[in-house]
């Protein structure tokens, strides 16, 4: 809050109007519509809508396909977050150890973040292509027959790798910043107290890094749950047999392909609730980060 401010009756409204117009028309209005539709059912011709209360939600949570999609989302989200965080932390620790070459490595490691998720999907799809891809060929040498078009587990591994790949760069940058903010004196004191590098990592570095880690866990959850649509669409399209059909992909499929408006709206509202919970967690965390 500024102590002092301009006095002007109309100017502030004029300044804030564009943002308000876009927000209301393209954010609040559709979101309200989704909430409304989730309580309604439309007939086959789109002529009548009837008020059905919680029926859409009840149907949703009794639908084995939706429950399955929830499970798939959990596995996928945890897989992407774990893979992206652990690889990024390893790289960040390594960069933190190198004195001279650090910035060169950083440059070589950050650019995947700029590659569109859809393009990332296409790249890995190509690498793992069962007929021509390099990875299936290498795997066949050790006796594994890779086929993500038929095997659900293979498909899940493919989408997790593809989705984690650009996110490693993002996490890496934040871990590097986090490590830099730990005073060297702290680690030096631990070394004088007789703690070796491994012990120091677990007793000093990791605990002091926990605000960054916690923040990144939330951000990666949000990323994996909502921003990975292009990756799924470019690689497996939710298949085989819904093995990689995560919630955001299912909303799209049921809404645009299946044209089941009521169910799609109810799914949107469920996703909305998840985003709200994650956002609240993130903001409460930011408050804590300040005092840390």
């Amino acid at each position: 809050m500024k102590r002092i401010f301009f006095r002007n009756k109309f100017l502030p409204y004029l300044l804030i109007a564009p943002q308000m117009v876009v927000t209301i028309i393209f954010f609040l209005w559709p979101a309200g519509e989704a909430v409304l539709q989730s309580f309604q059912r439309e007939d086959a011709f789109g002529l009548h809508t009837t008020w059905v209360g919680l029926a859409n939600y009840r149907a949703l949570f009794q639908d084995p396909a939706y429950i399955y999609s929830l499970q798939v989302t959990v596995v996928f989200t945890i897989g992407v977050t774990a893979l992206a965080l652990i690889s990024a932390l390893l790289l960040a620790l390594a960069v933190d150890r190198t004195t001279k070459a650090g910035s060169t490595y950083t440059t070589l490691l950050v650019w995947p973040y700029a590659v569109a998720p859809a393009v990332v999907g296409v790249l890995w799809w190509f690498l793992f292509n069962p007929t021509i891809g390099l990875m299936p060929y290498l795997l066949s040498l050790v006796g594994y027959h890779w086929d993500h078009a038929l095997k659900g587990d293979d498909a899940m591994i493919l989408v997790i790798i593809s989705a984690a790949w650009p996110q490693v760069s993002y996490n890496f940058l934040f871990f590097v910043a986090g490590l830099k903010s730990i005073p060297a004196s702290m680690r030096e004191a631990a070394a004088i107290d007789g703690a070796g590098p491994v012990k120091r990592f677990f007793t000093i570095t990791l605990p002091l890094l926990s605000p960054t880690t916690f923040f990144l866990v939330v951000v990666n959850f949000v990323y994996a749950m909502f921003a990975t649509f292009p990756v799924i669409d470019a690689t497996t399209q939710g298949g085989p047999a819904d093995a990689t059909n995560i919630l955001v992909y299912k909303v799209y499929q049921d809404g645009f392909v299946g044209l089941n408006l009521g169910s799609s709206a109810a799914q949107s509202v469920v996703l909305l609730a998840i985003v709200i919970v994650l956002t609240v967690i993130q903001f409460r965390f930011i408050e804590r980060r300040i005092e840390y």
Binding site: K2, F5, F6, N8, K9, L11, P12, Y13, L15, I16, Q19, M20, T23, I24, F26, F27, L28, W29, P30, A31, E33, A34, Q37, F226, A227, F229, V248, V251, Y252, G255, F256, L261, S264, A265, S268, L271, L272, V275, I276, T279
Partner: peptide, 29 residues
């Protein structure tokens, strides 16, 4: 830099958009 009626409302409306990624409200949008 300004104080005006509905300033807080505007602030909260903008804040809410944080929670509405396009993937979530795709069909109605």
């Amino acid at each position: 830099y300004f104080r005006f009626p509905f300033r807080n409302l505007a602030f909260w409306l903008i804040f809410i958009t944080l929670m509405l990624p396009v993937e979530v409200r795709i069909l109605p949008t």
